[in-house]
Design a protein around this nucleic acid. Structure first.
Length: 478
DNA sequence: CGCACTAGTTATAAAACTAGTGCGGTGCTTTATT
């Protein structure tokens, strides 16, 4: 069978979407590749299809267990049973069984942490892997350096001379991210397919606000008068719960979502939102990856995201159906300081690093040394990684470099909120992309946005009022 | 770091001030012992 027959028979499509065929062709020819496709533009097909034309299993490195489960379910839907995700969802017995029968699978999903385990690596070396896939590869840049060091350790696995090709998939990657991916996955002159990230259907708004009370008021009013579904991104878990409660009282179907909730609850909320049983989600940046919902109409940011990439990814969850959607950033001056705290909190300064090192030298255990030098858990884990690879002076140099990168990204965000020209143009320039054709509703700096389509009809407003009444009655009774 | 909130202060009652405190994201793993 050739690629088009498989496309038709197994996946049920008549034609490829832009870029897919080129990526697949290069993987089939044994070349490394990076595919940068906006969300919902068929990234998964780029690895699923060639898997059927090559012998041996495909190893997919995925950042989240929930994402793995999602992909597994997706493949099963396409009548593929030879799929397994090896992660902490499995019991000891299940894991052992999966590993014993590993050669039966066509698709094997692993986290970077799992891949780095000795036992797993030995097992994988015995298999004849068709190719590796690194899904959401921007995580290398976004998480590798200061949050999940095993992303950096992937380098060790992929540096072997004779190895299968590697396909890196991501939705957003500027020059630096592409360089990081190439370097930390040890890609060898990769083929790079880059689809434009601009979504002409999304209109950008930037609103300056005095304080968080003003934001609360604006959001409440916005949700009463305009249509969902939508996501409100906030800075903290507590705020997510709090704001969701306030909105809920207005008779709006909303739930909060953040990393502090149980995995089960998170899946349920996500599912309800996707199914249309919830109109709004109040979330931290934990919400997003792997959400397949085409009709999200609004993204509201109550806080400032840490990087332009984060912002464009979060915003990019709107309007996958190509219909008009709206992205609003509510900004108050103090937000920059808040952001800096969160971002820098986990980064140790020179003194801390030296003190930690001196404690280690005197024979104190890493954990205790970290505690005494006032390092956060995250900082400790990172330093462990860097001390494995560098001497003290170079560790300090590395951490300083991370700090500078973060500082630069925050400065970019600051530029965005102070920008007086076209917001879309400003954001795209960070990704080296030029403004295509300006449409009617571009951004709040280009001209007054009409956004008529956003306004709820009277009937819709009435419905939410009735819900409000029912809800109140329910509360009185219950 | 800096904001938001609380408790305590002032002084003859209520409200305004001050000092003190708490809080602030992202996820993979998981040993042996309770």
């Amino acid at each position: 069978m050739n690629t088009h027959e498989i496309l038709r028979q197994r996946f049920g499509y008549e034609a490829f979407r832009p870029g897919q065929e080129e990526v697949i062709r290069h993987i089939l020819s044994g070349r490394d590749a990076i595919a940068i496709f906006p969300t919902g533009m068929g990234k998964s097909l780029c690895y699923q299809l060639p898997a059927y034309l090559l012998n041996g299993p495909v190893i997919v490195i995925s950042p989240l267990v929930a994402l793995m489960e999602d992909q597994v379910a997706n493949l099963r839907k396409h009548k593929e049973k030879r799929v397994v995700a090896i992660n902490s969802f499995l019991s000891k017995q299940e894991k052992d069984l999966a590993l014993q029968t590993i050669d039966r699978y066509k698709f094997i999903f692993l986290s970077p942490e799992m891949l780095m385990q000795d036992g797993i690596q030995k097992l994988i070396q015995q298999l004849h892997i068709a190719f590796f896939v690194v899904d959401e590869a921007h995580c290398i840049s976004e998480w590798g350096f200061d949050f999940r060091p095993d992303y950096l350790r992937l380098k060790e696995v992929f540096s072997e001379k004779e190895r299968p090709p590697i396909l890196a998939l991501t939705a957003t990657a500027n020059e630096k991210v592409t360089t990081d991916i190439t370097s930390y996955l040890q890609l060898r002159s990769p083929f790079i397919e880059r689809q434009p990230i601009d979504r002409p259907a999304i209109s950008y708004s930037l609103l300056h606000m005095e304080n968080h009370h003003a934001k609360t008021e604006w959001i409440a009013n916005r949700l009463i008068t305009t249509v969902g579904p939508g996501i409100i991104y906030v800075a903290s878990r507590k705020r997510a719960d709090e704001l969701a409660a306030i909105i809920h009282q207005k008779g709006i179907r909303v739930a909060s979502y953040h990393g502090g909730k149980e995995q089960d609850e998170r899946s349920i909320i996500q599912e309800q939102f996707v199914q249309g049983e919830l109109d709004w989600i109040c979330a931290t940046n934990a919400f997003g990856m792997g959400i397949h919902k085409d009709d999200i109409r609004q993204i509201i940011h109550e806080h400032l995201p840490a990087t332009p990439s984060a912002y464009i990814q979060e915003v990019g969850r709107a309007g996958r159906d190509g219909k008009k959607s709206s992205a609003t950033l509510l900004y108050s001056e103090r937000d920059i300081q808040k952001l800096k705290f969160i971002v820098y909190e986990d980064l140790p300064d020179d003194q801390q690093i030296r003190y930690y090192y001196s404690l280690l030298q005197s024979g104190i255990s890493g954990k205790l040394a970290a505690e005494q030098s006032g390092l956060t858990e995250v900082a400790f884990r990172m330093l462990e990684y860097y001390f494995e690879h560098f001497d003290i002076e170079n560790v300090i140099r590395q951490i300083r470099q991370i700090f500078q990168v973060k500082e630069h990204q925050i400065a970019e965000m600051e530029k965005y909120v102070q920008h007086e020209g076209c917001l879309r143009e400003q954001l795209l320039s960070y990704f080296g992309e030029k403004l295509s054709v300006s449409n009617g509703d571009c951004c709040s700096n280009c001209h007054q946005l009409k956004e008529d389509w956003l306004i709820k009809t009277e009937v819709e407003q009435k419905v939410s009022n009735e819900l409000d009444w029912k809800e109140r009655l329910f509360q009185l009774l219950g």
